[in-house]
Design a binder for these strands. Structure first.
Length: 484
DNA sequence: TTTTGAGTTGTTCGA
DNA sequence: GTCGAACAACTCAAA
């Protein structure tokens, strides 16, 4: 019989620098498979990532078609589907790129064991990370809990391997007739919203897929990476890479980004700004650190890393939570961010910190509420980044953030959106307010508000909480936690 | 084992 | 308007 292999695509929806895909093509005729993972215990994707996934699968289908191959789609539990496919299709090699969520790790491990017992070769790879979570450890062999030493140790391991090109010609394997009934078409996965279709803003903002990821990286290296150091804090500018959703689904890998940045730096294409490049690479480092945390804290999305926070006096306030979600808190920079999120499925990183801090500190609402909302609405909602970042903001995570770091949305707005251009874009009802006063409309006189055609409480909300009082309440709540 | 320096992203107050 | 200090104490990582 002829050699046949199965590549199981998951969070690695690309053809270049995809080691599992490359290994499958080298082995024999390849069956390309994606399963919408509905295994028990798997956290369902949020609405925005479902939309992205749909578009990304569509792109991957096209890219594979260009190689004369077909992407087979299924839904259900991979633990039962894959052995069945392997047996029916007479596959003798199965490959995939590793995942790091606890339930996915367990599923993959059991499946590998079962297939190996059945005489099938299973090969697994790292496609998404510079270093896998267990590869970076302290001198005493324990996981890191602080970013800076983690990143130092990661860097000390040297350059990541150079990315591999798209494999050359390969033979594709068709799905056996007996399995046809398991395959579904993309529409049947029902990943995209229909009634109503709210995805217009997402479509306008993004091009999911490997080619879209490549373009985004190219644009960033040609533009915003110069001056990234200070520029990345400016939501009023196109100052970040916008690669996060592409990374989320592995349309591009960290190794590819790393080497593209280094190459541009060496070629002198980044005019005298190694510091900007370094700053950007450290953002990739934060993603790596988040995966390190997720792997070592499997319940990162639901449990405080710092158990002392289990006693934190969170408030339940459904009205305030709803105001935050809808971008109606009365604090313009927060509302702008939440509306950018709602419209485009993405929010500038600086504004994420401000909006998250506002929910957790000023409103004293449990970080898990925010994490869940972001999980549902962000196109880049990532199982490691999202919970790790929320815990970082809340102070319950593994970091050294001083307790008194409470972002003031007015100060932050004046500092990082000095002309109010970002607020004007997403909160158009404030458009006529003059200069920096746009960040604190409640301080304006009735005359000035009227001149801008604005009545607070009708055209735009009164602040949902007083900043001074909210800050005081958060500090008191933090002080109530017993020292560990 | 003990010690020591350090820890992403801030705000406020008073001189 | 600008600037430095204060804001807790703790934990981490490495020597």
């Amino acid at each position: 019989m002829c050699a046949a292999s199965l590549i199981w695509f998951r969070d690695d929806l690309r053809l270049a620098d995809n080691p599992a895909f490359a290994a499958a093509t080298r082995h024999g005729a390849v069956l390309c498979l994606f399963i919408l993972d509905e295994s028990p215990g798997r956290r369902p994707l949020g609405s925005a990532t479902r939309w992205w996934l749909s578009r990304s699968l569509d792109a991957l289908t096209g890219d594979l078609a260009g190689c004369g191959a077909e992407l087979v789609l299924m839904r259900g539990d991979p633990a039962t589907l894959i052995p069945r496919i392997v047996a029916e299709a007479d596959v003798d090699l199965v490959t995939w790129n590793r995942r790091y969520e606890a339930n996915a790790v367990a599923l993959d491990r059991n499946l590998k064991h079962e297939l190996t017992e059945a005489g099938v070769t299973v090969r697994t790879f790292n496609a998404g990370l510079l270093n896998e979570p267990w590869q970076v450890e302290t001198g005493s062999g324990t996981p890191f809990k602080v970013f800076t030493p983690y990143w130092r140790a990661a860097r000390a391991r040297g350059e990541p391997p150079a990315p591999a090109p798209v494999p050359g010609r390969f033979e594709s394997l068709r799905l056996p007739r007996a399995l046809k009934s398991l395959a579904v078409d993309l529409a049947a996965l029902a990943l995209e919203p229909t009634a109503p279709d709210w995805s217009g803003g997402l479509r306008a903002a993004w091009t999911p897929g490997e080619a879209g990821a490549r373009d985004a990286l190219g644009r960033f290296l040609d533009g915003a990476i110069a001056g990234y150091g200070p520029g990345r804090d400016r939501p009023d500018r196109e100052s970040t890479s916008r690669l996060s959703p592409h990374l989320r689904f592995g349309e591009i890998g960290a190794r590819q980004i790393w080497h593209a940045v280094r190459t541009a730096l060496h070629a002198g294409a980044l005019p005298g700004q190694p510091a900007d490049a370094e700053m950007f690479l450290s953002e990739i480092g934060w993603r790596e650190f988040s995966y390190h945390l997720l792997f070592n804290h499997p319940e990162l999305a639901t449990r405080n890393v710092n158990a002392r926070f289990d006693a934190f006096p969170w408030r339940r306030d459904d009205d305030a939570l709803r105001a935050w979600q809808r971008g109606e808190t009365g604090y313009p920079i927060v509302d702008a961010g939440m509306r950018e999120l709602w419209t485009t499925g993405w929010m500038h990183n600086r504004v994420r910190m401000i909006a998250a801090s506002f929910l957790v500190k000023h409103l004293l609402i449990d970080w898990r509420e925010g994490e869940r909302w972001f999980w549902d609405t962000l196109v880049d909602a990532d199982p490691a980044n999202n919970p790790a970042s929320w815990q970082w903001v809340a102070g319950s995570g593994a970091d050294a953030a001083p307790y008194f770091r409470i972002f003031n949305p007015v100060t932050q707005g004046e500092k990082f959106d000095p002309d109010g251009a970002y607020v004007r874009r997403w909160v158009p009802e404030l458009n006529e307010l003059p200069g920096p006063s746009i960040h604190s409309p409640w301080t304006l006189s009735a005359e000035k508000l009227a001149a801008a055609g604005l009545r607070l409480g009708r055209d735009y909300p009164q602040p949902v909480v007083d900043l001074q009082a909210g800050r005081r309440r958060a500090l008191d709540a933090l002080a109530s936690l017993k020292p560990g």
